[in-house]
């Protein structure tokens, strides 16, 4: 893909990835075939801020984990009332990096 397209994509979607991984993402997108651009646009990336809000409001019910696709951990969190509240509080700080990590995994699946 040409640099202009990649830079536009990163300007619009940079918040979905960890800052340190942006150069790697850019390099990988540059190598990506133009035909995959439409797939890239339709990739369902999760917004870390939205997940944080969900975690703050419904963290003790495990809703944030269900949204991220961690079904097993979601059930565990729901049945333990957010790990007696401790896990729910820890997740307030862990859920944003985890969302960005999962977004990167999703993006990397395009390159395989």
């Amino acid at each position: 893909m040409d640099a202009q397209k990649v830079d536009m994509y990163l300007m619009a979607n940079g918040k979905f990835f960890e800052g340190a991984t942006i150069p790697m993402v850019r390099d990988n997108l540059m190598k990506l075939d133009d035909s995959k651009f439409i797939v890239l646009q339709t990739l369902n990336l999760k917004d870390p801020t939205t997940i944080l809000i969900v975690s703050l409001l419904g963290g003790s019910l495990g809703i944030d984990r269900f949204m991220l696709g961690d079904t097993g951990l979601g059930i565990a969190k729901l049945l333990t009332c957010g790990g007696l509240g401790i896990w729910a509080i820890v997740d307030w700080f862990m859920v944003m990096p985890r969302t960005r990590e999962l977004n990167l995994q999703k993006l990397n699946s395009l390159f395989i």
Binding site: S60, C81, G82, G85
Partner: peptide
């Protein structure tokens, strides 16, 4: 110990 119970006054699913 239940944050949900403290916040809403209602029992959570695992209370």
């Amino acid at each position: 110990i239940c944050m949900f119970h403290q916040a809403t006054g209602l029992p959570c699913p695992s209370c």
